[in-house]
């Protein structure tokens, strides 16, 4: 960043410079604070929550519980909002959650074609690719091609269903439980559950893949 033009207007020391975007954000925040709509400390707290406490680990907990507790799984597929809330994860926008079960016959994938609606409470904020136009347009037209982009191959017989999120409904994909995990605890199982597997652009890790990732 150059401050040279500041010197030209008579300063003997370097002054500050904010970008046009930073100026717009500060303008908005200072007006909203003055009018009592937002509290700067509450903004800090919300940001801290999303940077450190809300993320795909929440969703992995939900998935691992569904894999290991049949009653919970049944509740989750019937009323995902309540089942997920029972684990302490509740939505900010009052959105309705739907859990989608992946099976050998059916694979689910989630997109938001309009903008980037995403199940924040269980997955945190969306990755860059989820917000990108290429994903938003390709997911609905060529889901198998999208899986290929992510390095995922499914048998031709597997039917792929794409779900378009809205302001009211957010989806959580429950990936298939990997083979060779009988007797694993919920905590161990949760480590197999990746963010992408809960969006449907990936699969849960196999025990071998988990070992490789840890090395």
């Amino acid at each position: 960043m150059s401050h040279s033009h500041d010197h030209a207007i008579g300063h003997n020391h370097e002054t500050s410079e904010l970008t046009d975007t930073e100026l717009r954000v500060r303008a908005l925040e200072s007006i909203l604070v003055e009018k009592g709509y937002v509290d700067p400390a509450a903004l800090d707290e919300l940001i801290e929550t999303y940077e450190t406490r809300v993320g795909p680990r929440n969703g992995a907990h939900v998935v691992a519980k569904a894999w290991s507790d049949e009653d919970f799984a049944e509740w989750l597929y019937r009323d995902a909002t309540a089942a997920i809330q029972s684990l302490g994860y509740s939505g900010r926008q009052g959105e309705h959650m739907v859990a989608l079960k992946n099976t050998a016959e059916k694979h689910n994938m989630v997109v938001c074609t309009l903008c980037s609606c995403y199940p924040w409470t269980v997955l945190g904020l969306p990755p860059v690719w989820y917000k990108s136009a290429p994903y938003r347009s390709k997911a609905v037209r060529d889901p198998r091609g999208v899986l290929d982009d992510f390095g995922v191959k499914l048998p031709d017989e597997t039917e792929i269903t794409v779900w378009d999120s809205t302001a009211e409904v957010r989806y959580l994909v429950i990936p298939r439980r990997p083979e060779g995990t009988d007797g694993w605890s919920e905590v161990e199982l949760a480590r197999l559950v990746t963010r992408d597997s809960m969006i449907g652009t990936g699969l849960a890790l196999s025990p071998d893949e988990l070992r490789e990732a840890a090395e």
Partner: peptide
Amino acid sequence: IFREPWEARAFAMAVKL
């Protein structure tokens, strides 16, 4: 998730409003 601080401020303002 936020690449610059202003992104986080803008995000949080919408949620709070």
